Computed example of a mutant assay.
Amino acid sequence: MLDITVRRADAADRPVLERLWPLFQHDMSGFRGVLPNPDGTFRSERLDAAFTDADRVPYLVASGEHPVGFVFVRGLNGPARVLSSFFVVSGARRQGIGLRAVREVVARHPGPWGVAFQDNNPTAVCFWRRVAAEIAGDDWTEERRPVPARPDLLPDVWISF
């Protein structure tokens, strides 16, 4: 099992997160049907907002000097926090890193939480249900909500705890 650290990302970490972002977007493109921009990049508004919006915070997950993922949170000033983007690199998956990272981030921002994922992503379905049960026991809910401005997509699954 890899030792990890989860720390709030700062401006010096931004280039690392900018390199991880396309890997995350590539993974998600298979479930969202999103194609890269004409220049080969993916949209990065959520990445930008994680560093510029006072209601959001980015976290970098690392194993020693190696970045292995990230967690972006929004809703810091609202009634519930939302885990808005979450990624672990393929080489670090299935080692408990994701669950440990989520636990640490949730502990830093007490209160209600929500996370959305896609029903057609079986790995995410199992992972997020397990995370909810590990963190909240039986005190969590699941519902489907339409994706804003994307009626062509299946509804997102939202877990709240």
Rank of each mutant, 00 (worst) to 15 (best):
M1D: 07
M1F: 10
L2F: 07
D3C: 13
D3V: 14
T5Q: 11
T5A: 13
V6M: 02
V6F: 00
R7C: 11
A9D: 03
D10A: 13
A11W: 14
R14I: 11
R14G: 13
P15S: 11
L17N: 02
L17F: 08
R19H: 12
W21S: 04
W21A: 04
P22H: 02
P22D: 05
P22Y: 03
F24R: 00
F24K: 02
D27W: 00
S29M: 04
R32N: 14
R32Y: 15
V34Y: 00
L35R: 15
P36L: 11
P36S: 12
P36I: 08
P36Y: 12
N37V: 06
P38W: 03
P38A: 11
P38K: 10
P38D: 06
T41L: 07
R46E: 15
A49M: 06
A50C: 11
A50W: 00
F51L: 10
T52P: 08
D53E: 15
D55H: 09
Y59D: 00
Y59S: 00
A62Q: 09
S63D: 11
S63P: 06
E65T: 15
P67D: 05
V68P: 00
V68M: 03
V71R: 01
V73N: 01
R74E: 06
R74Q: 13
R74A: 06
G75W: 05
G75M: 12
N77I: 15
N77W: 14
G78S: 14
P79S: 15
L83Y: 01
L83C: 05
V88L: 09
V89H: 03
S90R: 12
R93Y: 04
R93C: 05
Q95E: 13
I97A: 00
I97V: 15
L99K: 10
A101N: 01
V102W: 01
V102A: 01
R103H: 09
A107N: 05
R108H: 07
P110N: 09
P112D: 10
W113R: 03
V115K: 00
F117Y: 08
Q118L: 07
Q118C: 07
D119F: 08
D119T: 08
D119M: 07
N120S: 08
N121S: 09
T123A: 14
V125C: 07
V125R: 03
C126H: 09
F127K: 00
R130V: 04
R130K: 07
V131W: 02
V131A: 04
V131I: 08
A132H: 01
E134S: 10
E134A: 11
D138T: 09
D138R: 10
D138H: 09
D139H: 10
D139I: 04
D139E: 10
W140F: 11
E142I: 03
E142W: 04
R144F: 06
R145I: 09
R145G: 06
P146F: 07
V147W: 02
P148E: 12
A149G: 08
A149H: 12
A149I: 03
R150Y: 05
L154W: 05
V157Q: 02
V157L: 10
W158H: 10
S160R: 14
S160M: 09
F161Y: 08
F161M: 06
